[in-house]
Amino acid sequence: MEKTVISLMVENNAGVLARVAMLFGRRGFNIDSLTVSATDNPDISRITITTTGDEQIINQIVLQTGKLVEVRAIRVEDPLESIQRELLLLKLRTSENDLNDIAAICSIYEAKIVDLSERSLIIELTGKSGKIDAFLAVLKKYELIEQCRTGVTTIERGETAFAYEQRESHRS
């Protein structure tokens, strides 16, 4: 099933992430990835969730999550109208012979080798989730030590900002 990216503006209160996660847990909604970050407003955090579900489920996710008292705004991101990025950090076991090949693959994907030791290296790549998947597939033949992906973060194209309700925070 298609992945859907949902953005939320939430009050930056203790426990707010737990509340959102608990709602997904209790209603059986999927979380494929989740990122939380600060915004330009110290009272507001931004959560980006990648999920899977048909139209009815996505609709329920938006309506149920939108009901949480500390959620100020929620929207489904249109993949064509938004920039969606993920960061990948990858640690591979390498021998001297592999180095040139790996560097070549990295340059095609515009990935960076950010650390190199005698028998291992670390690669950094940002891009759409699909690009990261493809990059990982190409590097499959090398021995993977460890990998870490941040999950999707996204911003809408054009000059508008993600508007959220302006009101007093429920901080207690």
Binding site: A14, G15, A18, R19, M22, L23, R26, L68, V69, H170, S172
Partner: peptide
Amino acid sequence: GIASPIAKHTYAVR
């Protein structure tokens, strides 16, 4: 936290 999924909202005053 315990009451959070069974209440409309919960507060922990600090």
